[in-house]
């Protein structure tokens, strides 16, 4: 590591463009939004930055608190489901034969590289009323119905397609679909580093697989589990596309409300305040995670 003072010219030529770019096109835009969050609308496009906290006050109204609460609940449930689905997958990849491991990782990663919008659209096509899921269920229903007729019972009522889209169920399903790789990769990274002899010792000493998982593997992999939870929760909390395309009128999440303030309601100061509240929530989570990692490093 060189000290910048001894190589001022080299340092300047390397540092100036990325730092300037970051300031001009990232810090400044965020700062403008931050300032707007303390402003109020005067006229159609004019915003007066008056230092008011009324936008934040409005965000605390029950309507918006409810949406915030709902976004947190939806993101938390999504994270939990991802953890339940993803943990066995990560475990399987960890203990798979080495030649299979990269291919299994690739199988999990490939959808993640596919466009988010297209994945959401693909899910919509199979879940809609005329989609495959409903069609297969209807087919089973009719099969069961004719089976009942065959044994001399009254047939089932006609099949009503399930409302699989445009509700909260669809939003959570869509979020799980999109965020599963976010969970599997950190879990795999943590499990891969685990000392296997500890698991073997536990099994040798008579603990079952489940007990070994809960009492040996889970505590040892806790940092990986926590980082997986945060990596999944943060984007799920700020999700815009999934609730927008798959949700119903009552499945609005915080990002949809923000979008509406900027694109339709044209209340930029309020949208700015909401977007900074979402950002603060994200930062707090990430800061907690970073602090945890640092203290863990110091301990070891």
């Amino acid at each position: 590591m060189q000290d910048w003072k001894q190589h001022k010219a080299t340092f300047a030529s390397i540092a100036v463009s990325p730092v300037l770019w970051l300031v001009a096109f990232f810090i400044v835009p965020l700062a403008v939004v931050w300032l707007y969050s303390f402003g109020r609308n005067v006229g159609l496009t004019e915003i007066d930055i008056s230092g008011t906290f009324s936008n934040y006050g409005r965000a605390l109204e029950p309507l918006y608190l409810e949406i915030f609460g709902k976004s947190v609940a939806v993101a938390a449930l999504t994270t939990l489901i991802c953890l339940i689905i993803g943990f066995p997958i990560a475990l399987a990849i960890t203990f798979a034969q080495p030649k299979w491991r990269p291919w299994m990782l690739l199988a999990i990663m490939l959808p993640f590289w596919t466009n988010l919008l297209i994945r959401t659209y693909a899910l919509i096509t199979v879940l809609r009323t005329e989609g495959y899921v409903n069609k297969s269920l209807g087919w089973f229903w009719e099969g069961a119905s004719s089976l009942k007729v065959m044994v001399g019972m009254a047939p089932l009522s006609t099949w009503e397609p399930l409302p699989l889209l445009y509700n909260n169920f669809a939003v959570i399903l869509g979020l799980v679909y999109v965020h599963l790789p976010f969970m599997v990769l950190p879990l795999y990274a943590a499990l891969d580093r685990l000392d296997r002899s500890l698991i073997e010792a536990s099994l040798d000493l008579g603990a079952g697989h489940f007990r070994t998982l809960t009492q040996i593997v889970a505590p040892l992999a806790a940092p990986g589990i926590i980082s997986g939870v945060i990596i999944t929760f943060v984007p799920a909390l700020g999700a815009y596309l999934t609730p927008d395309l798959m949700g119903g009128p009552d499945s609005q999440m915080i990002a949809n409300v923000i979008e509406r303030q900027f694109k339709r309601a044209n209340d930029w100061p309020f949208g700015a305040a909401l977007s900074f509240l979402l950002m603060y929530a994200t930062f707090i989570l990430i800061a907690l995670q970073t602090l945890r990692n640092r203290s863990a490093e110091r301990r070891s």
């Binding site: 060189q2 910048w4 943060v234 815009y240 979008e259 900027f262 949208g271 700015a272 977007s275």
Partner: peptide, 27 residues
């Protein structure tokens, strides 16, 4: 390089990765 404010620069550099997309979009 070692330079004053390095941690801040490092942190800011990581921000575009973690900031919710919607916030960056409105910004």
């Amino acid at each position: 390089f070692r330079f004053p404010g390095k941690t801040a620069v490092e942190g800011t550099m990581a921000l575009p990765i973690v900031v919710p997309e919607i916030c960056m979009g409105v910004a």
